[in-house]
Amino acid sequence: MKGNISMLAFAFLLIASSCTSDSEADLVVPAPLLVKYTTDVRPIIQGNCIPCHTDPPVNGAPMKLTTYDDVKYAVNNRGLLDRISRPQGAPGMMPNGGTRLPQTKIDIIKKWKDDGLLE
Rank of each mutant, 00 (worst) to 15 (best):
S18P: 00
S17G: 15
P62G: 10
C52S: 11
A74D: 03
T104G: 09
D69T: 10
L81P: 04
C52E: 01
G47W: 02
G116H: 08
N76P: 00
A25I: 10
C49E: 03
L14A: 15
M7L: 15
T99R: 13
K111N: 02
D114M: 12
F10T: 11
E119F: 13
G97Y: 04
I109H: 03
H53R: 03
A61L: 06
P32Y: 01
V71W: 01
G89C: 02
A61H: 03
V29E: 05
S17V: 07
D70C: 10
Y37V: 05
K36W: 03
Q103S: 10
I45V: 15
W112H: 07
G60L: 04
L27K: 13
D55A: 15
R42Y: 08
D107M: 03
G89H: 05
R83M: 11
T99M: 09
C49P: 02
L27R: 12
R83C: 05
V35K: 03
Y37A: 06
M1P: 07
V29N: 06
V41E: 03
F10V: 13
G79P: 04
D22L: 14
Q88M: 04
V29F: 10
K111G: 04
L80K: 07
Y68D: 02
Q103M: 11
G79H: 09
L118V: 14
N48D: 01
M94D: 01
V75N: 03
K113W: 01
G92H: 06
S85N: 09
P51Q: 06
D55Y: 10
S21M: 12
G116M: 10
N96R: 14
R83A: 15
P32N: 07
P95A: 09
V58I: 15
Y73V: 04
L27M: 09
Y68K: 10
N76W: 01
R83T: 02
P102I: 08
K113R: 14
L27V: 14
K36R: 12
P57A: 06
L101P: 01
K2Q: 10
M93V: 09
I50M: 11
R42W: 07
I15H: 04
I106P: 02
S23E: 05
M63Y: 14
K111P: 01
V28R: 12
I15L: 15
I108P: 00
L14I: 11
K64I: 04
A11F: 14
V41Q: 05
A25M: 08
K72S: 10
P51C: 08
I84Q: 02
T66S: 13
A90Y: 14
G92R: 07
P51I: 01
M93S: 12
V28E: 09
R42V: 01
R83S: 11
P91S: 11
N59Q: 12
S18K: 02
E24G: 14
M7C: 08
S17H: 09
L118Q: 14
G97V: 07
F12R: 05
L13P: 00
P57Q: 08
D55M: 11
N48R: 11
R78A: 15
S6C: 09
W112Y: 06
Q46S: 11
D22R: 13
A31W: 02
V41I: 08
G97L: 07
I44Y: 07
W112R: 06
C19H: 11
F12E: 00
L14T: 13
D107K: 08
A74E: 00
D40G: 05
L80T: 05
L34S: 12
D69N: 14
C49H: 06
R83H: 13
Y73R: 12
K110E: 08
P43I: 05
T67K: 10
H53E: 02
L8A: 15
A31G: 05
F12S: 09
